[in-house]
């Protein structure tokens, strides 16, 4: 008996070592694969254009410059489009979360009546789209063209994210929720007092996914927000990418400034600027993920 336990422990520790070794190795490989190109882009953003063209830049800036960063940030549209994107993302995340959580909770209740109807509605909404023209006409008819609602509202009820939340809710210990009802809680109370506190991991994840999709969205903003002061960062960035020449020409002012930036270095600057905000919020999301473990275990 004792022998067997010892043996088990041995196997266990050996397998744990194997797994941990593989996990660490995997991380190292991933880090190299990902970081080498990423650092290359970051290095390009701060290298002199001629150094880039000459192929001298690898993982560290050559002939360091921050002129590119300055030029992009002082383009009249940059700051405004950044603020617009932040506004759309923040408001969008809040609205989406409310709508999706409210939808996911009833759907996760095991005895809900009318599930088939809801399923059909979701399936159809997910699979078919009316297309650009009629959607534009609906948004235009509501007077939303050239307002931020035109890009916030249509994406707020993402069926995919809602289903992620529902999946998570369904995985929660039903006993805890049941007992809340028995204690006399209403549906809202059960959702807000019992279910949500156990759901920080999924809420932070879906917030992140939603934030990313609002932040990265291009099609909607490009069609519905044609007025310059409504431009979002992604639209601004792609415009700039398509017209880097304006910036390189701007540098043809003196012998010294010619060659300071190249098409590629400007594109790199823009890439770095667009990615930084989203990279910055990731650790925040991770913190909530960790929090989820403890809360989940306490209640579960």
């Amino acid at each position: 008996m004792k022998d067997k336990k010892m043996k088990n422990k041995k196997i266990r520790s050996r397998s744990a070592k194997q797994v941990s070794f593989i996990a660490n190795l995997m991380c190292i490989i991933l880090l190299i694969l990902v970081l080498v190109p990423v650092l290359h882009v970051a290095a390009l953003a701060f290298s002199r254009g001629t150094a880039q063209l000459a192929g001298k830049v690898y993982l560290w800036p050559v002939d360091f410059q921050i002129e590119g960063l300055k030029m992009v940030m002082t383009q009249t549209g940059f700051l405004r489009s950044l603020l617009n994107s932040i506004y759309i993302t923040v408001v969008g995340v809040v609205i989406s979360l409310v709508v999706q959580i409210l939808f996911a909770y009833p759907l996760s209740r095991p005895k809900l009546k009318g599930r088939n109807f809801l399923t059909a509605v979701l399936a159809i909404a997910m699979l078919f789209s009316g297309g650009l023209v009629p959607t534009y006409m609906v948004i235009n008819g509501l007077g939303l063209v050239n307002t931020f609602w035109a890009v916030i509202l249509p994406g707020a009820m993402s069926t995919f994210n809602m289903l992620l939340i529902r999946n998570y809710f369904e995985g929660l210990p039903e006993g805890v929720i049941e007992s809340a009802y028995i204690d006399g809680a209403g549906d809202l109370q059960a959702l807000f007092k019992v279910v949500l506190p156990m759901s920080t991991p999924i809420i932070s994840t879906v917030s992140l996914l939603t934030a990313i999709s609002y932040w990265n969205s291009y099609f909607g903003p490009s069609i519905y927000l044609t007025e310059g002061d409504k431009m979002t960062l992604q639209v601004f960035i792609r415009n700039l990418m398509a017209d880097t020449q304006t910036i390189t020409e701007q540098l043809e002012r003196t012998e010294e400034t010619i060659g300071l930036l190249s098409v590629t270095t400007i594109q790199s600057v823009v890439t770095v600027l667009a990615a930084v905000p989203m990279i910055a919020i990731y650790p925040l999301c991770q913190r909530f993920l960790k929090q989820g473990i403890t809360i989940g275990s306490e209640k579960g």
Binding site: G77, F219, P221, V235, R238, N239, D243, T246
Partner: peptide, 29 residues
């Protein structure tokens, strides 16, 4: 899109007497 408030745009404004708002179509779509 990015021509508003440029020196060049101001020169035009002064020369013509008209204030013009410049809006740009997206590079794609």
């Amino acid at each position: 899109a990015d021509l508003n408030d440029t020196i060049e745009a101001k020169v035009i404004e002064e020369a013509t007497g008209y204030t013009v708002e410049y809006h740009g179509l997206p590079a794609e779509n």
